[in-house]
């Protein structure tokens, strides 16, 4: 068919990418002057080769996809698929849960990042300065991630320099662990620059009650709720007034007092006809 020629050239172009040697998407830009979004091969310091998605456009580009947090069942309570909290049940004897925020375990594939959890070696291997976050509807294919996203933003303060250069190192300093501290012991809250959405649209993604206790325009790390459960990331917001963070922060340790354990811990609190306003 007529398409065969173009398709072959396209695949040849992709094949050439496998000759690149770089540890991050930023290095691909700097060394090879490549500016096209898509999948690239990267190499760790130890020589492990893996494939991931590069966003080469946002704010000048060179953003490496290192992880995705996907909710396979909002009704699950630290069950199968809750890799970013615990797959071993809500258990105070496992305060770290699966521990994936601060270990070298990897899982999933870049192309499937909107259909299941994903974590690659870049998560702990890349020395980075900033973070970018995309909220992409489940099961959207890679070529539409950017357009389909309901929220996109990035940081510009180079804050990761202060915390060891990546989230792996940061969460060593601020463990995502039950009973590690009280709400006042949260990790850093960093101002964000919006690429899609704004403060108002961010607020509206969360329930009416959470809107009264957080400030939009930030990304917060290692939040702790009133019951001393730890959460990894409050995306787009900073808890300021009260600390029911289980309703708007994701990832976590292995135990939540009111059985709200999960990757999106208690985002669904009201859905089953309980109290109103948190969902």
């Amino acid at each position: 068919s007529l398409n065969l020629g173009t398709n072959f050239e396209h695949l040849e172009k992709l094949r050439n990418r496998s000759t690149y040697v770089a540890r991050s998407c930023k290095e691909i830009i700097d060394r090879y002057n490549e500016h096209e979004d898509g999948l690239y091969f990267l190499t760790t310091a130890n020589g492990m080769v893996y494939q991931t998605f590069c966003d080469m456009t946002t704010a000048g580009g060179g953003w490496t996809l290192v992880a995705s947090v996907h909710e396979n069942s909002i009704y699950g309570r630290c069950t199968v698929g809750d890799r970013w909290s615990s797959q071993q049940g809500n258990n105070a004897n496992l305060p770290d849960g699966d521990g994936n925020w601060s270990n070298r375990n990897t899982f999933g594939a870049a192309e499937g990042a909107t259909s299941d959890d994903f974590k690659n070696p870049g998560y702990y291997d890349i020395m980075a300065e900033d973070i970018s976050v995309w909220h992409v509807p489940n099961n959207v294919p890679l070529e539409h991630w950017n357009l389909a996203a309901i929220l996109r933003y990035h940081t510009e303060t180079h804050f990761l320099r202060l915390y060891g250069g990546n989230l792996f190192q940061m969460f060593m300093q601020y463990p995502v662990r039950y009973n590690v501290g009280s709400p006042g012991n949260r990790g850093p809250a960093i101002p964000i620059v919006y690429d899609h959405g704004d403060k108002e649209s961010t607020k509206n993604l969360y329930g009416p009650n959470p809107r009264g206790e957080f400030e939009p325009g930030f990304i917060t790390f290692r939040a702790i709720n009133n019951e001393r459960a730890a959460m990894a990331i409050c995306s787009g917001v900073k808890p300021v007034r009260a600390y029911n963070t289980e309703h708007y922060c994701i990832g976590g340790g292995g135990y939540f007092l009111t059985d709200q354990c999960g990757d999106f811990p208690s985002f669904d609190w009201d859905r089953l006809g309980r109290e109103q306003g948190w969902s």
């Binding site: 991050s24 998407c25 930023k26 966003d55 060179g62 953003w63 490496t64 996809l65 290192v66 992880a67 995705s68 947090v69 996907h70 909710e71 909002i74 990042a113 909107t114 259909s115 870049g122 890349i126 980075a128 300065e129 900033d130 973070i131 970018s132 976050v133 995309w134 909220h135 992409v136 509807p137 489940n138 991630w145 996203a149 309901i150 990035h154 990761l160 990546n166 989230l167 509206n204 993604l205 969360y206 329930g207 959470p210 990331i233 995306s235 309703h247 708007y248 994701i250 999106f264 985002f267 669904d268 969902s279």
Partner: peptide, 15 residues
């Protein structure tokens, strides 16, 4: 949180 939010994956990037 909104259904929009719970039915979206959170993608994390480094630079």
């Amino acid at each position: 949180a909104s259904k929009e939010m719970t039915e979206a994956a959170v993608l994390l990037f480094y630079r």
